[in-house]
Every structure is written in structure tokens, then in C-alpha cells.
Amino acid sequence: MAAATITVPQTEMPLSASYRGKVGMWCLIVAESAIFSIFVVAYLYYAGKSISGPTPAQVLDIPWFNSICLFSSSLTIVLAEKALHHGNIKRFGLFWFLTIALGVIFLIGTGREWYGLIYHDGLTVSSSLFGTTFYSLVGLHAFHVTVGLIGLTIILIFTLLGALRQEHAARVSVFAMYWHFVDVIWVVVLSVVYFIAR
């Protein structure tokens, strides 16, 4: 029993269990970053190596509007977190909804871009190396946005049902980390696809 009674200085306490979610999410982010970096490497490696089909410079124009929407969604989600932290559910719901809206706009934008590429420029996954790498990289990101949106929507539904309460703030902010990650990745994808390898 002797040992148990000795009080342990705070400094010796490990991260408390409430950090669990954050640490877990960080691990996921590390893994995801590794996946993305491989796709980025492939994209850069094959840049300009296509033997047929259009070149990026010919068909790609920078999706400013899209990007601004996605980036600002990072802002709205922060505001939403703040609101929830202060227990202001209404305000939270509003900003949360805004985030979703911005995400959806981004997806629609990507969809329209792809439509143009496929039906006007004849750029498909199988048409050339550029096609393969472009759709894979951008598509992988779009896929992550979609997953994010599904998660966001579920939380929104909870909010509307009134199931979401202030004490969930920690969990919600863990999910917000994922959304921020998706935005950061877009910075990389954007600069790689539309600037560096153009």
C-alpha cells in the first residue's frame, strides 16, 4: 500500500484521457498525409510525361472561387466551435450549416470542372498519364471532402434534433480537426496541380 499513498507531482501525470480523441485524430492525420504525399509524388513525377492528350496548361484554370469557399469553411467551423464552447447552440448550428454549404459548393465546383474536362477536353482517367494522376489526386481529396461533409451533416442533424449539448464541444472540435486537415491538403493539391506542375 505504501506506494499507492505517495502523491505523484502533476508533472508526472501523462496526458489525461480526455486528449484521447485529439491524439487519435493526429495519428489518423499522419497516416492520411502519408497517403496523400504518395499521390503527390506520383503526380509530380509524371508531370509532363504524358505521351498524348491535353497538357495541364491547356485545360486547367485555377479554381479561385472554389478554393476561397473551402478555405473560408475552415473559418466558419472555428466560429461554430467557439459558439458551442460558449453553449450557444443556435449560433453553432448556423455556422455549422454555413460550413456544410461551403463544402457542398466546393464539391459542385469540382464536379463542373470535371464535366468540362471530360466532355470538352476529352481528358479521362484512361486518356493519358496526366488524366490518371489528375483525377486520382484531386479525386482523392474530393473523396475526403465528401466524407467530411457526411460527418458534418450527421452532427448537424443531431443539432437540429437538439441532441447536441455543450459538453460535446471537445468531440466536435476533434471532428473539426479533420475538416481543417482536408483544407490544408487542398492548399497542397492546389499548389501542386494548378501552379507547380502546370
Binding site: A31, A34, V125, S126, S136
Partner: peptide, 25 residues
């Protein structure tokens, strides 16, 4: 595992894209 297995996952996905969507990785 986090940093090394993920690249394999990525490569496998590329291979699937090659085999099913006619990609050229």
C-alpha cells in the same frame, strides 16, 4: 505502421485504378 503502411495503401489504390479504370500509373 502509420507512416509506412499508408504508402502501400496508396500504391494499391493506384494499382486498382490501373486495373479497373484503365489508368496508367
Amino acid at each position: 505502421v502509420l507512416v509506412a503502411l499508408s504508402p502501400l495503401t496508396a500504391a494499391q489504390v493506384m494499382l486498382l485504378i490501373d486495373r479497373y479504370l484503365g489508368g496508367h500509373f
